[in-house]
C-alpha cells in the first residue's frame, strides 16, 4: 500500500488526491441512492401492502402508505399455518440441496476444468444441453420416474438428485470457469510433490475459489428456499411442505388475502436477504494469489 501513496507525478489534476476521492465518493453515492430506489420499490410496495387493511387494499395505490400499519398481519400469517413445520421442512431441503450441490458441482467442475478424459468436451455440451430443454417438457416424465422408484410421498425427489448434479449444470459451468483460473503451475508443483488429484482438489482448488463456492451455496439456497413449484409437484405429503409452498395458502381465487400474501412473502424472503447481506461481505476481502504464486 505505501507504494501507492508515495506516487510519482500527478500532471494535470488540480484537485488533491483526497479531494478527488471525495468527489468520486459523492458522485457514486448519488448514483447508488437514486438507483436503489428503483430497485427497492417492489419490496417497499410489498411491505406497505403487508401492513394494510383489506379495505385499504381495495383502493390500490391511491394511498401508498397504510393509515395505521397492521403489524398483526405478520402474526396472522405465521399463526394460521404450521409455520414451524414448514420452516423445518424448508431447512431440511435447503441443507441437502446446498450440501449436495457443493459436493457434486465442485467435483464435476474440477473434472471439466482441469482433467483430460475421453468425451469430456462432448459431455460438457451435453451438460449445457440439459439446461436448454424447457422444464415443463420433462415435468410429467420426471414425475413418472419418481413414481416408479417409489419416491412419491417422501422428500427424496427433492434431495437425492442434488448429490448427483441434478439442477447443477449452471453451477458446474460456473465453477469450471473459476477452477480454470487457478494457475496450472500450482497443480504441477503439487503433483511433483506427490499430491494426488483429490488432495489438489481439496487443499488447492476449494480454498482458492471460496467466493465462487459461496456464490454457489447462496444461489442454491435462494433457489430452493423460494421454490414452491418443485415442492408442489413432488411432495405428495403435505407434512413435507415448505414455507414457500405452505404460505401460498393465502392466494385464493376470489377471497384473496393480499395483505397476508405479502406478509407471508416477506417472511419467506427475509432470511435470504439477511443471508445475502452476510455472504456478500466475503466479496470484499477476497483471497488473492499473492504469496502463493511466486
Amino acid at each position: 500500500m505505501q507504494t501507492a501513496e508515495c506516487k510519482p507525478k500527478m500532471k494535470e489534476s488540480r484537485l488533491t488526491r483526497p479531494q478527488k476521492r471525495l468527489v468520486k465518493t459523492i458522485v457514486l453515492q448519488i448514483v447508488l441512492v437514486s438507483l436503489s430506489f428503483v430497485f427497492l420499490f417492489p419490496f417497499l410496495w410489498m411491505l406497505v401492502t403487508a401492513l394494510k387493511t383489506p379495505q385499504e387494499l381495495l383502493h390500490g395505490i391511491e394511498k401508498f402508505f397504510p393509515d395505521s400499519p397492521q403489524w398483526g398481519n405478520f402474526v396472522t400469517a405465521v399463526t394460521t399455518v404450521p409455520f414451524l413445520m414448514y420452516l423445518k421442512n424448508s431447512l431440511i431441503l435447503v441443507f441437502f440441496a446446498v450440501t449436495g450441490t457443493l459436493f457434486s458441482a465442485t467435483l464435476t467442475a474440477y473434472a471439466f476444468a482441469k482433467l483430460r478424459w475421453p468425451g469430456r468436451d462432448i459431455f460438457f455440451v451435453v451438460m449445457l444441453a440439459t439446461m436448454m430443454i424447457p422444464p415443463q417438457a420433462i415435468l410429467i416424465p420426471s414425475y413418472i420416474l419418481y413414481a416408479h422408484i417409489g419416491w412419491l410421498g417422501t422428500r427424496l425427489p427433492l434431495i437425492v438428485p442434488y448429490f448427483f448434479g441434478g439442477g447443477a449444470a449452471f453451477f458446474i459451468f460456473l465453477l469450471r470457469q473459476f477452477f480454470k483460473g487457478i494457475p496450472n503451475e500450482l497443480m504441477e508443483s503439487a503433483i511433483v510433490d506427490g499430491a494426488g488429484h483429490l488432495k489438489i482438489f481439496i487443499y488447492l482448488m476449494l480454498p482458492l475459489t471460496k467466493p465462487a463456492l459461496i456464490t454457489v451455496a447462496l444461489i442454491t439456497f435462494m433457489f430452493v428456499w423460494n421454490d414452491y413449484f418443485g415442492p408442489l409437484i413432488f411432495l405428495s405429503n403435505p407434512d413435507h411442505w415448505t414455507l414457500a409452498l405452505g404460505l401460498r395458502a393465502f392466494e385464493t381465487q376470489f377471497t384473496g388475502r393480499y395483505e397476508l400474501m405479502m406478509a407471508a412473502a416477506i417472511l419467506v424472503m427475509s432470511p435470504t436477504i439477511v443471508l445475502f447481506f452476510v455472504a456478500q461481505k466475503h466479496f470484499i476481502e477476497g483471497i488473492t494469489f499473492t504469496g502463493i504464486k511466486g
Partner: peptide
C-alpha cells in the same frame, strides 16, 4: 387500482360473476 375498479367506485356498472361479490365481501 388493485382489486377491482368497480369495488374502488370508478365504474358505474360492470358484468361480473359472484366472485366479485365474494371479493368485495372479504375486503369489506
Amino acid at each position: 387500482l388493485g382489486i377491482s375498479p368497480f369495488a374502488a367506485g370508478r365504474l358505474g356498472m360492470v358484468i361480473s360473476s359472484d366472485g366479485l361479490y365474494q371479493t368485495m365481501r372479504s375486503y369489506g
